[in-house]
């Protein structure tokens, strides 16, 4: 029984971690006032880049690095379009997703069906073998620990450093921030690139550890869920974390149900994690005041210093 619970716990973490990466990155981007709808595309490009590099070189961690860089590179296209050329963020973000989906499908074509050496779960001698505790705490994928580190880092950066304060201020009112002399565009470039890198890393985790393989469109809409997660989590990192694991848990329910042969169409079951996550988050974030206090007021609007 305990064995079973531990397994479920581990699988939940594994499934949720994809979203933790992507949504935390997008959270930082949005806190700076930029809405990048290209998360799905960036994740896929990150996944395919990671898989190809791992496939070619045989070094999976090199693949993770490549995926991160690929996500960041794709987001830079978006940054140039929206921050320097003042293109509409919604349109540019949607285009970026479509571009990423197409690009990853095209470049990954010859790698479909390949098998790589995946990044295996942690196996610390002694610690990982401890009864219960070992498997509960010390035997997850390194990516899980990385994502928790990222969570702590984001929380500390946003709410504990001056740079984070400046970033939040810029998301709230770029005009005011500019007026008192902060570099709005530079900070937003940084935030968008960070978001891209995180999405890329999330994709890399899928292709190198969670799946591990490459198939066209393998993120299956998780980029869009990450976007929704940020909004419904009210731009709070810990809520993003909770939402991501909720998604992970319901994903498991779906597999369990299928395995037990529940008489429900599989398409309906596949839909379940998405629907459940959105509904639960929407229900717990109905407070208008809290939303206004946390939502970056300038979200999605272009900034241009009127010089």
């Amino acid at each position: 029984m305990i064995e079973h619970a531990i397994t479920l716990f581990a699988l939940t973490l594994a499934a949720g971690t994809v979203l933790v990466f992507a949504a935390l990155g997008e959270l930082v981007t949005e806190k700076a006032g930029v809405l990048n709808l290209g998360v799905e595309g960036m994740m896929l490009v990150g996944a395919v880049a990671a898989f190809i590099v791992a496939d070619q070189t045989g070094h999976a961690w090199l693949g993770a690095l490549a995926g991160t860089l690929a996500g960041a590179a794709l987001s830079l296209i978006f940054a140039v379009l929206t921050l320097s050329l003042l293109a509409n963020q919604v349109a540019a973000g949607l285009a970026l997703s479509l571009f990423g989906i197409g690009l990853s499908a095209f470049t990954g074509l010859s790698h479909v069906g390949h098998v790589i050496d995946p990044i295996a779960p942690l196996a610390l001698p002694g610690l990982s073998d401890l009864p219960v505790i070992g498997r509960l705490l010390f035997a997850h994928s390194p990516f899980v620990y990385l994502s928790l580190l990222l969570f702590a880092l984001v929380q500390w950066f946003l709410f504990g450093t001056r740079a984070g304060l400046v970033l939040r201020a810029i998301g709230e009112s770029p005009q005011s921030a500019h007026a008192i002399g902060h570099k709005v565009i530079a900070v937003r470039y940084g935030a968008v690139t960070f978001g891209g890198a995180c999405a890329g890393l999330g994709g890399a985790y899928m292709a190198l550890a969670y799946a591990p393989m490459w198939t066209e469109g393998m993120t299956a809409g998780r980029g869009w869920i990450a976007l929704a997660l940020v909004v419904f989590a009210n731009w709070k990192p810990w809520r993003v974390l909770a939402g991501a694991y909720l998604f992970g848990a319901v994903t498991l329910v779906q597999f369990q149900a299928q395995a037990m042969g529940v008489d429900v169409p599989s398409q309906f079951l596949a839909m379940l994690p998405y629907a459940a996550t959105i509904i639960v988050l929407a229900l717990i974030s109905r407070d208008a005041v809290a939303i206004r206090r946390n939502a970056p007021a300038s979200l999605g609007r272009a900034f241009h210093a009127d010089d």
């Binding site: 709230e172 921030a177 007026a179 902060h182 206004r292 206090r293």
Partner: peptide, 16 residues
């Protein structure tokens, strides 16, 4: 005013 509504007085001042 070039203030940030959702931040505290102290944070607003620190920003400048």
């Amino acid at each position: 005013f070039s203030l940030f509504e959702t931040l505290t007085v102290g944070e607003n001042i620190a920003l400048a």
